[in-house]
């Protein structure tokens, strides 16, 4: 199972690949983000080989978070064919994310 920890360059490459990409924007001081982490890890396993699943630490990559207009964390952004197709703001149950993934596989 692969769960990527993206910086700006890594995310750019993943998105440019055109594959379905799911990225969780988080920070260590955010309780809801920490609660979401196990779900993201589980989905990385469940969609291994089908979806590129990764995380961005908004503290370390604040310019990247800013450029994507992240205004509240956790935010999960989905990319496909090189562009954003959806985003989910706030903590949500796993089904909220799998619904987007399944619809775009």
């Amino acid at each position: 199972m692969a769960l990527y920890h993206f910086n700006a360059d890594g995310l750019r490459k993943a998105v440019a690949s055109g594959n379905l990409v799911m990225v969780d924007f988080w920070a260590s001081w955010c309780g809801p983000c920490r609660m979401l982490a196990p779900t993201i890890e589980k989905l990385a396993g469940q969609y291994d080989g089908k979806v590129i699943v990764g995380k961005v630490n908004t503290d370390e990559e604040s310019a990247l978070a800013g450029s994507l207009g992240i205004m509240s964390i956790p935010t999960v952004i989905f990319f496909k064919d090189g562009r954003e197709i959806d985003r989910k703001v706030g903590l949500m149950p796993a089904q909220a994310y799998t619904a987007v993934l399944d619809a775009n596989l």
Partner: peptide, 13 residues
């Protein structure tokens, strides 16, 4: 989209 309930979570943004 700019409305937040958590200063510790979102302040840095």
């Amino acid at each position: 989209a700019g409305v937040s309930y958590c200063a510790t979570c979102d302040g840095m943004l």
